[in-house]
Amino acid sequence: MSSELTVDVARKGEVTVVSPVGRIDQETAADFQATLMDGIREIIDGDGHMVLNFAGVAFISSLGLRSLMIGAKELRAADRKFLIADLTPIVQEVFQISRFDRVIDVHDTLDDAMVALVS
């Protein structure tokens, strides 16, 4: 049994929605970071903002947090928005302990995040 992570990337208007499904851990964090950074580069080279739909993320370790922090910094430096929506309980716990809610805009649902972007 190995960790599996699929990452769906969809464009909705000027928002790129990245939806990882699975575990972001020792095994998958490097691939997650590569996909995330591809999406971020496209946004920075073009236009728009990014929303991460975390409804399908069952687990995240500090390696995954590191990727999110790098992504958040890149987008902030380019004056783009970076939102995360729909955290599962263990991911929420990891975010609280790491105080990621201080540095990344967290929303209860994907819809909430999309509304927050246009308002």
Binding site: S61, S62, L65, R66, M69, I70, A72, K73, R76, E93, V94, I97, S98, R99, R102, V103, I104
Partner: peptide
């Protein structure tokens, strides 16, 4: 340093912090 703003905050160093708190 978990109170730093995004720009100042380091990108790593959270592993042991997670361990201690979990």
């Amino acid at each position: 340093d978990l109170d730093a703003d995004l720009e100042e905050r380091g990108i790593g160093g959270l592993g042991i912090h997670l361990v201690r708190n979990m």
